[in-house]
Each structure stands twice: as C-alpha cells, then as structure tokens.
Design a protein around this nucleic acid. Structure first.
Length: 305
DNA sequence: TTCCAGGCTTAAC
DNA sequence: GTTAAGCATGGA
C-alpha cells in the first residue's frame, strides 16, 4: 500500500537530560497492574494515541543512554506536525524539559528525601499532559483507595474510549470530553461512580468540550495559584484535586497536596510518627523544599506504592 | 462489622 | 475564616 511503512518504524528520537533514568520512570509507570492507558515491560512503554484522527500504537524505549526512541508499532506514520505534537506530549509526560539539579541539591540535604532521591535517582514527575484525563483521574481518585480508582478509570475508558487490539492486548485512549455530551448521569452510576464523581466528570467534560476550560488557558494565568482558583470554581473540584492537577498536568513543581492521605502516610511511615501529620505540619516540614514541593511529594509517594 | 482510602460540600460557629 | 457533619463506594 502506498505510504505504508514497515513494522517497528523509528519515528524520531528525543535527547534526554541529565538526572533522567528511564528504568526508574518505568517502575513508576508499572506501579499498578490495573493501569489501562499504557502497557509497560522491561524495555519500554507502549501507548495508544490518535494523531490526525488516525489511531497509532507508539512505543518508547531507551536503547542507549541519553536518547529516547519513539517507534511506530501500528498504524500510519503521522505527518511532521502530528509528530511534533507527539514529541511535545512525551516531553510533558516525562517532564524532560526540567533541570532537576536544583531539586537534587535540596533532596540530598534533606533527611526525609535523601534516601528516596538515591533509590529513585532519575525519576521525573510522570505527568498527565491531557487536562481532561488529569482532572478525571483526580476526580475518580477522590476519597477512594487507588485500586478502586484504577477500576473506575478502566470502566470509564472501556465504556467511552477508543481502543485497538494489537498483539493479543487491548490498548485504549482515554475518552475525549466531547464523547460525554449526550451521556446521562445514570450511565456513570452504572460504572460505579458516585453521584458527585459522575456530576463532576460530566461538568468538566462539558466545560472542556465547549472551550470554557483548557490547559492553555490555565497555563496562561499569571500564577499557578490563579490556575488553581479557576479549577476551584468547578463544583466537585477542591484543593486536593486542583493541586493534583497543578502537579501532574500544569508542570507546577510548587504544587503541594497537603491533604493527600498518601503523602501523609508516607511522611508518617518515614518519620516514625504515631499518627498522620496535619497539613500544617506538612507545610512546616516542606520549608526546605520550597519550589520543589511537587517533586518531593512525587518521591514520597514512591515510599508507599 | 468496622475502618480506611492519593476528598468535597454544606452548614454552623 | 475555620471546623464538623454528611456523603458515597469498595477493599481489607
């Protein structure tokens, strides 16, 4: 067929920064067997994308140090513009544009972070570059254990996302917000979402689909706090959700979800406290981390999951 | 059954 | 502005 390429085409390579370790990031990606939006193995991660309305299966590997290879496993090779978008997505996914040296200077001087920085050296905040996906993941994760949050995401994705069978596996794209235009609350209840989660997911979907909310708009705000204020206007989006989105979608290294029970448990565990720290105590503890609270949180999570 | 989980809203002070 | 109670759902 004209224009068809062979299997396993190398699309492009991305240069990798210092203080990046792909294997450590893969460990993070591999943290739950219930993850439905990508598949990891020893060598890399495979994910389904829709580029130029064409489904493609993309694989990321780092065969040699300092170079990330982006390979097309299935589908038609996207055009230059779509490849540029894919490259940007991957940069954001693994926070590749960040100079992590300042964080490591902070971490290596900190009794709580030092062992984590050593054990997970080269870990980046693995982002959720798509705003709708990031908001949904946070909403689904409100006040439920992680296993159940993954189950909800899988339910939502399988019900409304596009999928591709390849190599005996099913790969999914997270559903686009437009898909939810005609969806009734009751449909989401059937997927085990609570009334609040269902309402908020539909509200966010409608906002984003109509252009009333976008990542670009949030990034254009004068400060991360201003972006957070915008998110807090949405009913069902509270402090934890907005800080979580700042951290994983808006590239904000200062986001600090002090209400996060996982963060609280990690600090309790690592410090030997007999109770969970209060948000105020976490703020106090984070004084030396100023500017890198989100990275500190991400590394602290690794102590638990 | 009870308690907890990568919370949010509302109502009362 | 801060705090308490109510809300839901599955897992251990």
């Amino acid at each position: 067929m004209w224009g068809r390429r062979g299997m396993n085409d190398l699309l492009f390579e991305l240069p990798l920064p210092a203080l990046f370790d792909f294997d450590v990031c893969l460990e993070y990606l591999n943290r739950s067997p219930l993850e439905c939006l990508y598949r990891t193995d020893q060598q890399g991660v495979t994910r389904y994308f829709i580029l130029d309305n064409m489904p493609v299966l993309i694989r990321l590997t780092v065969p040699e140090e300092s170079k990330l290879q982006v390979t097309l496993l299935h589908g038609t090779a996207p055009g230059p513009e779509a490849q540029e978008r894919l490259a940007r997505y991957i940069m954001e996914w693994f926070d590749l544009g960040r100079d992590l040296a300042p964080f490591y200077r902070v971490a290596e001087a900190d009794p709580l972070l030092q062992p984590l920085a050593q054990q997970h050296r080269g870990l980046r905040i693995v982002g959720i570059p798509d705003l709708f996906e990031a908001l949904c993941w946070a909403i689904l994760g409100q006040q439920v254990n992680l296993a159940f949050a993954y189950r909800l995401k899988h339910q939502l994705t399988a019900a409304y996302g596009k999928s591709l069978e390849w190599g005996g596996q099913t790969y999914y794209e997270f559903p686009a917000p437009e898909v939810f235009a005609e969806v009734e609350l009751e449909e989401l209840f059937a997927l085990q979402l609570t009334r609040s989660k269902a309402r908020t997911v539909l509200e966010v979907a409608a906002l984003i689909a109509s252009g009333g909310l976008s990542r670009e708009e949030l990034l254009a705000k004068p400060s991360p706090e201003a972006a957070e204020q915008r998110l807090l206007e949405i009913r069902g989006v509270g402090p934890w959700t907005s800080q979580y989105v700042r951290m994983r979608c808006l590239d904000d290294t200062t986001a600090f979800p002090v209400g996060d029970v996982g963060l609280q448990n990690a600090v309790k565990f690592l410090t030997g406290m007999d109770r969970k720290p209060t948000p105020a105590e976490l703020v106090q503890l984070a004084q030396p981390w100023r500017g890198w609270e989100a990275y500190a949180t991400f590394y602290l999570w690794r102590a638990l999951y």
